[in-house]
């Protein structure tokens, strides 16, 4: 067993389970698989023989491990549970447009939505995002640019939400 005590595991979980779930749901598009991934990632954290170097290290480790675990799940495509009603029912949206934007984000390529999430939501710089994803900062910048352009195009294709994009000028 690893170096973390039960209390430390619980604390780590409460601080970061939400982030790991967001990454997993975004990449796997499937709530049951995303929940399984959360458990797997934190089990791996529990098995670590070395303590984390600090808050930044533990967060980065969880991001990279979550992403790798999702890739494993996608590789073993047959393991993915079939999408069902509950997948969407688990999410409630403040505005209808939020649900539509989430659906569009899910359609982006894996590397683009991951870069989008780390940079715009988690607040990592493009350099830090590049480190986490094992790529050059310039590559990440082009992914971010492409992701936003794709979202803009998709939003414009969508009549109801398209009006809002015109207002915000994207």
């Amino acid at each position: 067993m690893g170096v973390l005590t039960t209390e430390e595991v619980a604390s780590l979980y409460r601080r970061h389970a939400g982030m790991v779930y967001q990454i997993s749901l975004m990449l796997l598009k499937n709530a049951p698989d995303a929940e399984d991934t959360v458990q797997t990632v934190f089990r791996r954290a529990m098995e670590r023989e070395e303590p984390f170097d600090g808050p930044d290290h533990e967060r980065a480790w969880l991001i990279v491990t979550a992403r790798n675990e999702c890739k494993n799940q996608l590789r073993h495509w047959w393991r993915t549970k079939r999408a069902d009603v509950e997948t969407l029912d688990n999410l409630t949206w403040e505005q209808p447009g939020d649900g539509e934007l989430w659906e569009l984000i899910l359609t982006l390529p894996e590397h683009e939505k991951m870069a989008l999430y780390l940079h715009y939501y988690q607040g990592y710089s493009t350099g830090e995002t590049a480190d986490l994803m094992g790529k050059n900062p310039s590559t990440v910048r082009s992914w971010l640019c492409r992701a936003r352009r794709r979202l803009k195009d998709l939003l414009e294709e969508d009549g109801e939400y398209g009006g809002q994009t015109a207002e915000t000028g994207l």
């Binding site: 389970a17 939400g18 779930y21 967001q22 749901l25 975004m26 929940e35 688990n90 999410l91 409630t92 949206w93 403040e94 939020d98 934007l101 989430w102 984000i105 989008l116 999430y117 715009y120 939501y121 936003r148 979202l151 803009k152 939003l155 809002q164 994009t165 915000t168 994207l170």
Partner: peptide, 17 residues
């Protein structure tokens, strides 16, 4: 689409307590 819209969407993607 502004950055805050992206943030707003991700804020809502969460497990129930």
């Amino acid at each position: 689409m502004e950055d805050k819209q992206l943030k707003q969407v991700f804020d809502q993607v969460k497990l129930s307590p």
